[in-house]
Design a protein around this nucleic acid. Structure first.
Length: 322
DNA sequence: AATTCGTGGAC
DNA sequence: TGTCCAAGAAT
């Protein structure tokens, strides 16, 4: 047999084993779940949908305050859809990936136009909304409508990779084998609690770095622990940041969010000084210049923001969409 | 299928 | 201090 250490056949878990996992993890969840506002019984489907958008690639602690303000200002999809997308971008603040705010705004408009202002309750309909992919559609259907959908996020993938497959980390991208395994592990009932519980276990105990195996409810059943916690069999790709267009775009968006009037192109391109409203002194946009960005990169980044609808031209300046 | 797209806390 | 990485989606 060749050195095929990669697992081909993922054994279907025995019924008795999955029952044990279900009991242990859901019991742990009942005692250890964080009290998050979007988990409150009275939280609307819209509130859950907003949380799912904000939580994409963003930690809970940073989402909490923004979500609270958002829901107070826009308690329904119709309320958000009634305002310019630029308002959504401002309220998004520094959550990151501002195109999510744009997509959430567009999704709200679609909900008003095609769903009578109510968040649709099926995975298929949710998938049609901008910014809603496989994970988010399943999550909203499960958490807001208690539909028996298989939710697979980065936390759940990691728990499954370790506990069931015996790997330190899940594959670089979601595989069909992972989806199959996740579906096989789904209980026959209480699917919402199960989805939330595995996710929470991954977020609080079975973390990417220094997992707290000592307080894990299924440590005795964990294939990764049983194998002696082997190292990952691949090196995760780092996320480049310094010097990237993303960094420049982020700096430009920060300027646009703060501006009350259109910002001159020359200012965003770092070729002129701006006057600080507080001191009255000329302040160079060091945020953009100190990045070491070339003229070409600055121009490309601004064009990207305009093309993506994150900004728009207004006279000789640029502003958030109005 | 591999890239692109923000931000900031933790270690 | 620099690296890692977080409830992904779209192309």
């Amino acid at each position: 047999m060749p050195n095929s250490t990669i697992t081909h056949a993922k054994p279907t878990p025995a019924p008795g084993q999955t029952r044990y996992l279900h009991e242990q993890i859901t019991s742990w969840f009942a005692d250890n779940a964080r009290e998050l506002p979007w988990r409150a019984p009275q939280c609307s489907p819209w509130g859950i949908m907003v949380s799912e958008f904000m939580l994409q690639q963003t930690p809970v602690v940073r989402v909490l305050p923004v979500w609270e303000q958002w829901m107070q200002r826009w308690p329904t999809p119709a309320a958000l859809a009634a305002e310019p997308s630029g308002e959504a971008l401002r309220a998004w603040g520094r959550l990151g990936y501002p195109r999510r705010a744009l997509r959430l705004h567009a999704a709200a408009a679609t909900i008003v136009d095609r769903h009578g202002g109510q968040v649709p309750d099926t995975r298929e309909e949710l998938l049609q909304l901008p910014g809603v992919g496989t994970y988010t559609a399943a999550a909203i259907a499960s958490f807001a409508f208690e539909r028996p959908e298989t939710v697979v996020d980065t936390n759940i993938r990691r728990v499954h990779a370790r506990a069931a497959t015996g790997n330190a980390l899940p594959a670089p991208s979601l595989t069909s084998a992972e989806m199959k395994l996740a579906a096989a592990l789904m209980p026959g009932r209480e699917t919402k609690a199960w989805n939330a519980a595995v996710m929470e276990l991954g977020a609080l105990v079975c973390t990417a770095r220094s997992p707290k195996c000592g307080s894990c409810p299924v440590q005795e059943q964990c294939a990764w622990v049983a194998a002696g916690q082997p190292e990952p069999h691949y090196v995760p790709k780092g996320q480049a940041w310094a010097g990237t267009d993303r960094q420049v775009r982020g700096a430009m968006m920060a300027v646009l969010r703060e501006a009350e009037t259109p910002v001159l192109r020359e200012v965003l391109l770092g070729t002129v000084d701006v006057v600080d409203h507080g001191t009255g002194h000329a302040v160079h946009l060091t945020k953009l210049r100190s990045l070491g960005a070339s003229d070409e990169q600055l121009a490309r980044s601004l064009d990207g923001l305009l093309a993506d609808g994150l900004a728009e031209t207004a006279g000789s300046g640029v502003r958030l969409p109005n």
